[in-house]
Nucleic acid binder design. Sequence first.
RNA 1: AGCCGAGUCGUCUAAUGGUAGGACAGUGGAUUCUGGUUCCAUACGUGAGGGUUCGACUCCUUCCUCGGCUGCCA
Length: 560
Amino acid sequence: MPDEEKKPVHFIKSIILEDIANNKNDARVHTRFPPEPNGYLHIGHAKSICLNFGLAQEFNGKCNLRFDDTNPSKEDQEYVDSIIEDVKWLGFDWEDRLFFASDYFQQFYEYAIQLIKAGLAYVDSLNADEIRQHRGTLTEPGKESPYRNRSVEENLDLFERMKNGEFEEGAHLLRAKIDMASPNINMRDPAMYRIVKASHHRTGNKWCIYPMYDFAHGYEDSIEGITHSICTLEFEDHRPLYDWFIEKVGAYHPQQIEFARLNLTYTVMSKRKLKRLVEEKFVCGWDDPRMPTIAGLRRRGYTPESIRNFCEMIGVGKSESTIDIAMLEHCLREDLNKRALRVMAVLRPLKVTITNYPEGQVEMMEAVNNPEDESAGTRQIPFSRVIYIEQDDFMENPPKNFFRLSPGSEIRLKHGYYITCTSAVKDSDGNVVELLCTYDPETRGGWSEDGRKVKGTSHWVSAQHAIDAEVRLYDHLFTTPTPDVAPEGKDFTALLNPDSLEVLTGCKVEPVLADLPVGAYLQFLRQGYFTKDRDSVAGKLVFNRTVSLKDTWAKVQNKG
RNA sequence: AGCCGAGUCGUCUAAUGGUAGGACAGUGGAUUCUGGUUCCAUACGUGAGGGUUCGACUCCUUCCUCGGCUGCCA
């Protein structure tokens, strides 16, 4: 495919290319996406998903979906279900390779026995506090546990009894016997198994001991025949351990490769923080359209293609970076521009009466569904004597570069007629509540034979045909591009944008919107991309603003 | 402080000893029945010093800055 050639060669791809050239692993490429089911997936995970599944696709390999479910106290089936839905929605397929680390618990147990027998693991009976004190610090070596040299027999016996549930949580711990003086703290006799008496979402109460990430993860990869185990930078310090556990049991050895996780401006990406936003009701749930979760982006109206393109565009590297969210929004608009149905919706209605238009007359006007896609066809829109236009589209005393309606000026109603404002009707407070206009019958369809130019074009909705709707305008969740750096003594929630959601009611939309499905990709002409929210009911439609259109007029005004 | 890692336009990312390029954001303009799209133009960068070389983003060296690591989380 010529498309393929344009894809950038990042450092992970170079490694794979070289491995293939050397016929390493028989030139196989097998990756995996290994989420822990303890939260919803976010756009950062999307980067990893696109990387892992994308690499497999590109090199004719495979990619597994594997749940790293080694900690029953934090994990839940709800998360498993949401993760499966999200990866699928993003457009990736793991075929029959849906795996769970918990399926390998027996194998892990046997590896642990093997390490004990080889004198490479021991049961420690220090408590958590004592272990911390023995660990040393970043600059000082640790001290060996007094239990470090228990006999193999004693270790075997104790470990067996740990497994059988004879001890309370925290009473004992199986540790690897490596080096308490290692400059890499991860190598100072790391924990392999801890006692946890919680019910696991898949294995129930079968196990009382659960393996730690460092001990289990390499084996998970090894068992599945993974060739390239791709993870984020913070595991770099753990790679010696990853290698150690695999080598000491003589198992097949995948290669761990670390890359920089995604950070985005104006949002947070840590699961812990996202969870807090949900649990403390700063947002309406994991799929709140302001959340950077896949579920939130989906509900917001993002397309999977736009997210995939974004992940391709940002590249893969090893340096910590924060991507401007404008780049994500660019990918979004680029995709939506090609596919969104153009419709007219008046968010802040201003009544317009066309005084010379016959009372009671209704004309059907033809509207293009998508100027970027001829195959999208056209539809009919009702036009009548009383319509609504946007309040912003009228100014009584306009500045010189205002192209829209003002007393005496003429504009085009998109797909309608040219109209000229003759007067503005005001209420007792002086607010403009209605416009009186005349139309030119010779401009039907929004075009004049005489070549006369009008600068402005407004969208509109026929008053008697309009449907009421609620429109939710979303903005960045945080007021600062870097909400991860909270001001002194303050929590990141202090940085939340109080205007991240503005709810507009009494909006007037085209009749066609009643029949469209939830999730439809729309452009409200001249305003932005929107999608129908699942909160819509027959009498009240609800739309989410996915992203606004670029607005050079707003820019001009702001410079004002 | 110890270990590991990373420093290229405002933000991402290419160039691996031979013209520092692309994207987003910015600016100016053209086109347009969306102040959208599209098109054209334009400004902006190799953390610092020293060394090797005809030639250094690239190699060597000293320094500086930033990030990660002291869970029985992943």
